[in-house]
Amino acid sequence: MPVYYFSLVWVSVWGIISNITSKQVKISNEIYENRSRLLIAIIAILPIIIFAGCRSSVADTAVYINGFENYPNNLSLVYNMIFDGSRRDPGFLFISVLIKQFISTDYTVWLSIIAVISGLGVMIPLYKYSCNFGISIFLFVASCQFTWMFNGMRQFLVASIIFGCTGLILRKKFIPYVIIVCLLSTIHTSALILLPAYFIVTGEPWDKRTILFICLIILAMLFTSKFTGLLEDAVENTNYASSMEEFKSADDGTNPIRILVESVPIIIAFVYRNKIKDKLTPIIKLSINMSLVASGLYIISKIARSGIMLGRLPIYFSMYNLILLPWLIKNIFNKEEKRLVYYLMIVLYIAFFYYQMVITWKGFGYASKVLGLAY
């Protein structure tokens, strides 16, 4: 736990520094928001990248390391493995072998490269789009989303790259977006869910597509067994099926407290929708829709205790809460209310951090041979 406590304190301190040193930028006509300095943003995320890259034993890390050490270190030997139809991660294998052949056979270097890509994939959109980078980076750690860099890194590598490509969605660059998603699906096939999701999240908040999605969530809740069975039939003969098998074995439904925590932004956005409707910017519209999809998937994953387990899919959407929540607090509440809401948010998220890391995950043990740490 010390490395995780350190990470929480570090992002809190540098989050404060980020706000003190922030600069005003013009978002659109007559709309200005504060943005963090790039150097401060990098410093804030740096320890998490270092701890993730230097780990030797956290959750599923040993499995990944064993896989990397068994990969060939020559591209000429990997052709048949990459094009083996039964393999679910040919893209991940290809990247790993590239690193192993041309950079280093040391797994720490490999983990560090992936940690850098994942960390920057989170940091850059927060730096570009968050009206309060300090709160956003705090939420990234306090909500425990940062643990994806230590456990489930293959899927989070995909999620962070997609998050980093937010600009493509905002500019409605559909073809480049599809190409990137298809390429990333070779790293983790669950990325394919982002293709149909594109048509939901690019609409106006609370429009017909949104209402349709909400109706689908309700129907899925009412007819869970038939819904999950339908999805199983749909993916049975596709590469996505192998990824779903992974969910079945690893996911038994999402913790209700996690659902509540991740649903707070979309609940606030809905309750105050009339108050904020004239203030919405493109990134906030997208973030509201992304948050809605994340909450819907979390709810379904809790109910669908058999069949396809959806508990890992929301990570593709829930990171937009890191942008949405600070914006909602800034634009909904007056000065006195805002101060109270910030204090309440910080206390509750720290409590959730403790609950998730200590009580639920029993400390989420960490070990690093490079750093000489073992907890």
Rank of each mutant, 00 (worst) to 15 (best):
S104V: 09
L212H: 06
F163R: 02
P72A: 14
Q101K: 10
V13C: 09
N331S: 05
K275H: 15
F353N: 01
L313S: 02
V58H: 01
I332T: 02
M123C: 09
S368A: 04
K100F: 00
F199H: 08
I303C: 11
M221Y: 14
L46Y: 15
Y32Q: 05
I259K: 02
Y107Q: 07
I332H: 00
M153D: 13
E69N: 12
V109I: 13
V122S: 03
R171S: 08
P176N: 04
F83K: 06
E69Q: 12
V358N: 15
V264W: 13
A41Y: 07
L371M: 10
M309K: 06
M221H: 10
C165Y: 01
T21H: 05
K302R: 15
L322I: 03
F146M: 00
I276R: 03
F223K: 06
A142C: 10
T281E: 05
V122L: 06
T238W: 13
A234M: 12
K338D: 07
M1Y: 06
M309I: 09
L183M: 15
S76Q: 15
L348C: 03
A191N: 10
A250Q: 11
L324F: 04
L46A: 14
G53K: 10
S57F: 12
V264G: 12
A234E: 11
L46Q: 10
L231V: 09
Y32V: 03
A294W: 12
L168G: 01
S36P: 01
V116S: 05
S225D: 13
L322D: 02
N151H: 15
S295P: 12
G203L: 11
I135S: 14
Y177F: 08
I31H: 08
F317V: 07
I17M: 09
K277M: 05
P176T: 07
S22M: 02
A191C: 11
N132A: 00
R258L: 10
L260F: 07
K23L: 06
Q101W: 04
L348Q: 04
